[in-house]
Amino acid sequence: MSTTTQAPLEQVVLGALASVAPEADLAALDRNVPLREQLDLDSMDFLNFVIAVHRALGVDVPERDYAKLATLESCVEYLAGLPRTKPA
């Protein structure tokens, strides 16, 4: 997957994170450190994050795949491989 197709996905993920953690400095996010740890997300915040991604992309992430959304890097990689109903 090339960078040009993944950049919009990353913007979607960052937008979803901004909606659940409005006070966070997302520019300082480490791509490879778990999001829940970096942003202090609880399980409800994480669900709201998954829902925000779902609304933006039309993807349905099953609960058993939540672990694949652990970091920014893994989110983009995982979402790029999912069928979706809306463009990023």
Binding site: S43, L47, V50, H54, V61, E63, R64
Partner: peptide, 17 residues
Amino acid sequence: LEAENARRPVEERLLLA
């Protein structure tokens, strides 16, 4: 919960809380 959530769309999933 696991069985319920497997058949629920993401917006309707339940948390243990």
